[in-house]
Design a protein around this nucleic acid. Structure first.
Length: 815
DNA sequence: AACACGAGAGTTTTT
DNA sequence: CTCTCGTGTT
């Protein structure tokens, strides 16, 4: 980069901190950065916000910042905390850091929010009021825990579906609310809060915490324990937050506790990196508003925009810029690139989702054969998972290698969860969720009746299922006793064994492997169980969990802060024993179980496999490809109908589209279909409004020659322009013959598969018209199909949603 | 304990 | 349409 570096770096250094190394500007670390990146990396030790556009080198800035801080001795590794949302991002950060300078990345706290909270709670389990062996519930586990609770307290599952109760509980925790903090306005909420309370008691009794609890309990410990808080505030001098726009209320509150607001005596600097234009997780509690709050509450003086994009050609980038400029609520940012215009963005219309898939396969073949794209460098994106099916079918039939992201991950598979449940019971016999999962799996004659009796007994005695077994009698009691004995024996037998040996033994003695071996279709599951042994083996090697137990927080003893802690002097030291982190010992098994809960495993294509990648737009965030197809660009689908009715929802959909566009390096296809099978019926969709929000100059409206498509009037355009694929965008887009009455219908009417009526329909109802229905009220016509007695209209009623109405039956009147 | 049937739901997702 | 879940039957 020949971008001008700051005129005088030493001046900047002098302003920064007494630790600044005046020779820092010679550091090769900074040499390859552009001006904005350079400024961000070399910021003084004060709170700062980096607005990092897509493909602007965000990760590079984060890692280089850490490396630079260390290299210039402004901070020791122990003083660094860097937090991400995904394990993948954390892993990458560590990896890149390690490649930059020789540093023990384990001395720093680098991890996900939940990973770091886990680390923190393991260190302070007593102060946090948790058992040392607390287990982590994933979303599945949490739901089964809620279901169990609802059964136990005879909750009407129609009025309070367990899923909703779970959603409620998680939502409260993400807002930092305990049952007592939730404002109760109605009976329904009152009942839910009761269940939340009961759920908490159940979790505590069983020694388990869910994901939200990891965060909330960490936050509360920091908030309520001045010694712990002071300790960490002294320790972490630099906190770096990745994807800050995705933080929820609790995560931001946690950061505030950890760093201390100005005036609270904190000496730490937060570097928040994020992109409001890529905020696509509001539905799971993310608050973009945290960015503005951060600037205000932390009195942020340094805001830097990274707007130089190193990924895409400018036709792609300009499309993204133009699209996102339609959003009203933005901090404001425009990406630019030094690369040329590149190819135009191709826009394609197909008559059906089926035809779209077929066209896609043909185009993919050409892309690979003629244009030399690597298959794994091509992505097929869609808004919702259901869309993948038709694409997969076409790819499969064509024998074209593909890989679908998403779906069950390794540690979420039933057989793996079964094996883990045994291992968890060995660690923590009170874990009733795990107990119930495997008490009769493989089947050992313990039916629903015996389990119910056992649950009654446990409830009466206020103890765990495990402990209640001794009180049972009869044949069922004997079976239960045998089960408990088996787990107890395993616990003893595996003492001192390696993790691999432990798992081998458990898989064998519990009969899990044998059970699946006997099953007709159990071969895959047996294979997965074998893979579990491998996973454990590589975990031991990678994480350094050898034969002996390892102290979990390896970092603390090396930090200046903890040296102070274990030394003499500070007034707070009276409480050392209460949170002596060196005292926390984790067995390899316990560590592996934590790992399994917090890292459900890769969801991604294996590296090296040359297959085209299929995924949702959400899943594509953070990735990049040479060629990208965004499919299903239709109203109701993208933007999704559930999101397009409110302002915030639509803006988030647009950001989603922005994310999708900015994934592409060289070539971008935008595809939409006139008809689509959804929920077993064909829907007629208008093309997405997002297509109209792109700059015409960057686009090329390509349309494949498809049977039955000429009805729309494109055939005339095609022959007139001398080819099946019109070259003139303006012509193809705007010069369609007038059809119907309103100008809107000319633009958006979608041809049904039946022969198109050349005369205007007698009912006068056409797409775009406002109509009135006696029951549903006023609505907008999306499409009309058929003629005469068969004529049907698809109408979007604001109150009742999208409906198909037979015009001969429904009394629709034009408004 | 395995299987069969019917009801119901079907944006997006990481930890 | 297609998958999941829960209930009921053998």
């Amino acid at each position: 980069m020949t971008h001008g570096l700051p005129s005088d770096l030493s001046t900047i250094n002098r302003m920064m901190s007494p630790f600044s190394d005046p020779t820092a500007h010679t550091s090769p670390l900074l040499a390859q950065l552009n001006h904005e990146q350079h400024r961000a990396v070399a910021l003084p030790a004060e709170h700062a916000l980096i607005l990092a556009g897509a493909g602007s080198g965000k990760t590079r800035v984060l890692t280089t910042r850490i490396a630079w801080l260390l290299q210039t001795s402004q901070v020791s590794p122990g003083g660094i905390l860097a937090v991400t949302f995904t394990n993948k991002a954390a892993k990458e950060m560590k990896l890149r850091l390690q490649s930059m300078l020789p540093v023990n990345v384990n001395a720093m706290w680098i991890g996900t929010f939940h990973g770091l909270c886990n680390r923190f709670l393991r260190a302070h389990y007593q102060l946090a009021g948790l058992p040392q062996t607390f287990q982590i519930l994933d979303t599945q586990d949490q739901l089964s825990a809620v279901k169990r609770l609802c059964k136990q307290f005879n909750v009407d599952e129609d009025r309070f579906p367990p899923k909703q109760v779970q959603y409620f509980i998680s939502g409260c925790k993400e807002d930092g609310q305990r049952p007592g903090d939730v404002p109760v306005r109605d009976d329904e909420t009152r009942r839910k809060v009761e269940l939340y309370q009961l759920y908490e008691e159940q979790c505590l009794r069983e020694g388990v915490v869910d994901f939200g609890e990891l965060m909330l309990r960490s936050y509360e410990l920091l908030r309520d324990n001045v010694h712990v808080r002071e300790h960490y505030r002294r320790r972490f001098r630099h906190i770096l937050v990745d994807e800050f726009q995705d933080t929820n209320k609790l995560q931001y509150a946690w950061l505030k506790q950890l760093a201390g607001l100005p005036g609270e005596g904190g000496e730490c600097a937060i570097l928040a990196v994020g992109d409001d234009d890529q905020s696509i997780y509001a539905f799971r509690g993310a608050r973009v508003g945290n960015m503005a709050d951060f600037v205000r509450e932390f009195q942020v003086k340094h805001q830097i925009k990274l707007e130089q994009n190193y990924r895409s050609f400018s036709n792609i980038l300009d499309s993204a810029n133009h699209l996102i400029s339609h959003n009203k609520t933005r901090l404001g940012k425009t990406l630019r690139t030094d690369q040329g215009a590149g190819e135009p963005v191709r826009v394609v219309e197909s008559p059906s989702d089926f035809a779209e898939a077929q066209w896609l396969v043909d185009e993919l073949r050409q892309l690979v054969k003629l244009d030399g794209f690597e298959r794994k460098e091509v992505a097929l994106l869609y808004r919702s998972n259901a869309q993948s099916r038709v694409l997969e079918t076409a790819l499969f039939n064509a024998g074209f290698p593909y890989r679908v992201y998403g779906g069950l991950r390794f540690f979420e598979r039933a057989e793996i969860k079964h094996a883990l449940a045994y291992l968890r019971l060995m660690e923590n016999p009170n874990d009733d969720t795990s107990f119930l999962r495997v008490v009769n799996f493989p089947p050992r004659g313990i039916g629903a009746r015996s389990i119910e009796q056992l649950q009654d007994a446990a409830r009466a005695a206020g103890c765990s299922l495990h402990d209640a077994v001794s009180a049972t009698t009869g044949k069922a009691g004997a079976n239960l006793a045998a089960f408990v004995a088996m787990v107890d024996v395993l616990r003893e037998q595996t003492e001192g064994l390696t993790l691999r040996e432990i798992i081998d033994l458990v898989l064998d003695k519990t009969g899990l492997v044998n059970h699946y071996r006997a099953e007709k279709e159990g071969a895959d599951r047996v294979e997965n169980l074998e893979e579990l042994v491998n996973a454990a083996e590589s975990f031991v090697t990678q994480e350094g969990f050898g034969r002996s137990a390892v102290a979990m927080p390896q970092a603390l003893s090396q930090s200046p802060a903890s040296q102070g802690l274990s030394g003499s002097g500070s007034a707070d030291l009276g409480t050392i024993d209460e949170f002596s982190e060196d005292g926390v010992i984790m067995s390899p098994l316990a560590a592996f179980l934590t790992h399994a809960s917090l890292e459900a495993g890769d969801n991604q294509a294996q590296a090296g496999e040359d297959a085209v990648q299929l995924m949702t737009v959400h899943a594509s965030k953070g990735l990049e490809f040479d060629a990208v197809f965004i499919t299903g660009l239709e109203e109701g689908l993208f933007p999704h109908e559930n999101s397009m009715n409110d302002f915030d929802g639509l803006e988030e959909e647009r950001r989603l589209m922005y994310v999708a566009i900015t994934r592409a390096r060289k070539r971008l296809y935008l595809s939409h279909s006139q008809t689509r099978m959804l929920h077993g019926q064909t829907r007629y969709n208008l093309k997405s409004r997002f297509l109209d929000e792109l700059p015409e100059a960057c686009l090329k409206w390509v349309t494949p020659k498809t049977a039955g498509f000429s009805n729309l009037g494109n055939a005339a355009g095609s022959s007139a322009s001398g080819g099946a694929w019109p070259q003139t965008p303006a012509f193809n887009r705007h010069a369609r013959p007038a059809w119907g009455q309103s100008s809107l219908s000319t633009e958006t009417y979608k041809s049904p598969p039946v022969p198109v009526q050349k005369a205007a329909p007698e009912h006068g109802i056409s797409a775009g018209k406002q109509v009135f229905h006696t029951k549903f009220g006023e609505g907008k016509v999306l499409a009309v199909e058929g003629a005469g007695a068969d004529a049907r209209a698809q109408v979007n009623f604001p109150r009742h949603g999208v409906k198909w109405l037979a015009l001969s039956v429904a009394k629709l009147t034009l408004v």
